[in-house]
Structure formats: C-alpha cells, structure tokens
C-alpha cells in the first residue's frame, strides 16, 4: 500500500497546454470533422438521445405520443443511431486517456473555497439540468452551436453564443461566493 501512495505522489499532474495551442488543436479537430463528415462536434444532443433511449425502454408509448421524443425514438427508431452518440463516447474515452497520460485522473471535487462539497454537487446537478434544458431549447450547446455554428458562420449560432456569455456574465457577480 505504501508503495502505491508513493507512486501517486511522484506522479504530479502536468500543467494544461497553452490556451492558444488548445484552441488551435480544437479548431483542427473541428475542421477535420467538417471536412470528412460534413458535421461538426456536439455533446448535448447525445445526452438527449441517451435519455430518450432510456425513456423508450420504460415507456415506449409515451415516447410515441410526445412530439419532441418521437422524432428521435418513435416506433422502431433507435435514438442511439446518430453520429453524435459515438462522438459522446469517444469524448469520454479521449478525456480519460488525456487525463491518464497527464496524471490528472483523480477522484475529486473542484469548487470554490467557501462552499461545502455537498453544496457544490447539488449546484453542479442543478447547473447541468439548467444548462442542458437551455441547450435543447437552443438546439445545441457550446459545442454543437457555438463552436460548430460559429465556425460555419451560422447567424443564429453567433447570436446564441453571445447570449451564453451574456447570461453567465450577468449572473456571475451574484454567485461569486460559489467560485471565489
């Protein structure tokens, strides 16, 4: 046991890459996605499809009667049969491998110093719920709309991108205790 903790101690987390390099690499991935497949990147769409998949297992009739759900999973349709689902699982794996290579694979909770773990987890859940509700409303999140739509000069995606930053900055001051 002692030897394991020793190994862990010596494996310091490596610093993150420079933001501009990160931006360049992310842009390259996005460009290659468009070049090869004609589609960009995304995340919230997969979350929606996974949710509908579970709903379809439990209450298929309900799915067939709800307009938004039936488009994805009505009748024989498999909601997981979409490009965004392999992107989601690929991203999960890619994130894990990057974290593992750089010594950042660690069970922890990142939060501001003034709040408890419980508050942080509760707010993370709440934030996720609000975020993805908004992402479905906007037909895409920061990846599917802001990044992909931004790069293809989609007018609506640019409006939405400024709305995301606007919403976050407008509220940031009032929740400053959460993060500082």
């Amino acid at each position: 046991m002692a030897s394991i903790s020793k190994v862990r101690k010596t494996r310091e987390a490596k610093p993150y890459i420079h933001p501009y390099l990160g931006g360049f690499l992310l842009g390259l991935v996005l460009f290659l996605a468009f070049l090869l497949t004609g589609n960009g990147l995304g995340a919230s769409g997969a979350m929606s499809r996974l949710t509908v998949f579970v709903e379809d297992q439990i209450a298929p009739q309900h799915v067939d009667r709800t307009p938004y759900l039936l488009k994805m999973a009505g009748g024989d349709k498999n909601p997981l049969d979409d490009w965004i689902v392999p992107i989601f699982f690929g991203a999960l794996l890619g994130g894990a491998v990057s974290g593992w290579l750089n010594g950042r694979l660690k069970i922890e909770i990142n939060k501001g110093p003034r709040i408890s773990n419980r508050t942080r987890l509760l707010l993370a859940f709440l934030g996720g719920m609000i975020m993805v509700y908004g992402a479905r409303m906007a037909r895409g999140c920061t990846s599917g709309q802001a990044l992909s739509g931004g790069a293809t000069l989609a007018a609506g995606s640019w409006a939405l991108m400024f709305a995301i930053f606007g919403g976050a900055y407008a509220l940031a001051y009032f929740v400053r205790k959460l993060w500082n």
Binding site: I164, G166, G167, L178
Partner: peptide, 18 residues
C-alpha cells in the same frame, strides 16, 4: 433564450455539456 438559460447553467454548474 436557450443561450441565456445555458449561461445561467454554466455559472451555477461550472461546466457546459462537452
């Protein structure tokens, strides 16, 4: 509207979906 809601979720939750 979705973007504004996302912004709120972002600052409360600390992430975006990706």
């Amino acid at each position: 509207l979705g973007g504004l809601i996302m912004g709120i979720g972002f600052i409360i939750g600390g992430f975006c979906p990706g």
